[in-house]
Design a protein around this nucleic acid. Structure first.
Lengths: 135, 135, 135, 135
DNA sequence: GTGGTCTAGACCACG
DNA sequence: GTGGTCTAGACCACG
């Protein structure tokens, strides 16, 4: 797994790992069901402590991005786990988007700016995912 | 000075103050030469430790946004020097939106769903702000 | 804070702490806004490592039970944090109850048994909370 | 033998097998003297490691629920010895319901809300099962 | 003084 | 071989 760590960024290592994996899943580079490196393997590969790698994985697991299975390994999770109440999906998503907007507004950004920035980044992700499917 | 702090956001308080002041200067709410509250005053107003307010001011001073003059007070510096702030604002905003989208994508939401949820919540906030201005 | 650990139960220490705190919050012994012992303090009190105590607190924080504030301490959280979308509360609660029932059914328990056990335990908690309010 | 495993429940697979068999014996679905699948067969059927199936059988044997006879097969033991299973079932169920309620209470839900949500979901499941029986 | 990050290393539980 | 738990201890960031 390709992951670059920046030791001088100030962002904690475990968080860099979390974001790195999250982005690869978001981009489609890592697909649902795909196996991730083991905790030990990732730690060695990145030159960090096992506990640090484990911490990152645990956060990703809690967020529903990956699934760790004792003795078997760690895997990218399939999307919708709340099939029986799929209103839930909508609420979760809207809550997240709402928080994101509220935060930007509270920092003094105008709705128009927020809309433009969002559209720009979404366009970026769409491109990335399209490219991943062609691989 | 109007500043909203979020004690549970994870972002350190001092940094929230720094960003808040930066944005107000960039937006023109705080004008060059304008006097800022004293460290003590700001700390009381926001209900934070004096060291926290001081730390924020020191960073703003180091970055050339404000000027602390011993015994006289603290002032917004002349505008010409922080034209770069507008670029900074864009980066901050896009980074936030990017993370928000990546988060949702990595949990299996489709770009289209994300777009719809975002649009819905933004519409909500626009309504809220319009109503507030009429008060 | 009163917490008993059982070193021979097989249940990990950090989880025993999580459940202990959770139960006290549920019972009303710990009230919203109340300050919990510091990470270090709790560790010393229970004779466990700081990291173990921290791990328990972090889980409780993620679950919305407590709020850790850097440099200030750790506090019991007020109930509803999703006021802006209070449909969400209902969905979260129903999802949890649903999972609980589904799990019991899959283990071969009959609906009637499940209903009876649930009613019995809820009665217990109601009594406990009533007692706490009289303190 | 009908057994549903949940790879993401956190409960170890071997324990899920143990509990599943225990419950079926207690409920009478598996009768005294009845032959159980071989270790190999069970492992294949459930898609688990042979060691995992073996571990479950050893625990059940130790607890006097089944009897493994080398070269002949594995059988459910005579009923008189596990009258205690019925008490065990109750404890398991009540513990689960208790945790579920404590969880919800500790997040600020009121007993009344919890009761309503539980009743609603149980009603749902009863309907589902009734429909399934007509298939 | 509070919580946060990270390492090194031991030993355990599961498959 | 996989992940899980726990300790001991260092050093950092925040208020």
């Amino acid at each position: 797994m390709k992951l670059k760590l920046d030791g001088e960024s100030g962002t904690p290592v475990y968080r860099q790992i979390v974001e790195g994996v999250r982005h690869q899943v978001a981009a489609g580079t890592l697909e649902p069901g795909e196996r991730l490196p083991t905790v030990r393997g990732l730690a060695t590969e990145l030159g960090v402590d096992r506990n640090t790698a484990l911490r990152a994985y645990r956060i990703l697991e809690r967020d529903g991005v990956i699934s760790m299975q004792h003795g078997r390994g760690t895997f990218v999770r399939a999307g919708s786990k709340h099939a029986h109440l799929n209103k839930h999906r909508q609420v979760v998503l809207e809550t997240a988007m709402n928080a994101s907007i509220a935060h930007a507004l509270s920092q003094g950004f105008a709705p128009q700016e927020i809309e433009a920035a969002f559209a720009k980044r979404l366009r970026y992700w769409r491109g990335t995912r399209r490219a991943a499917r062609k691989d």
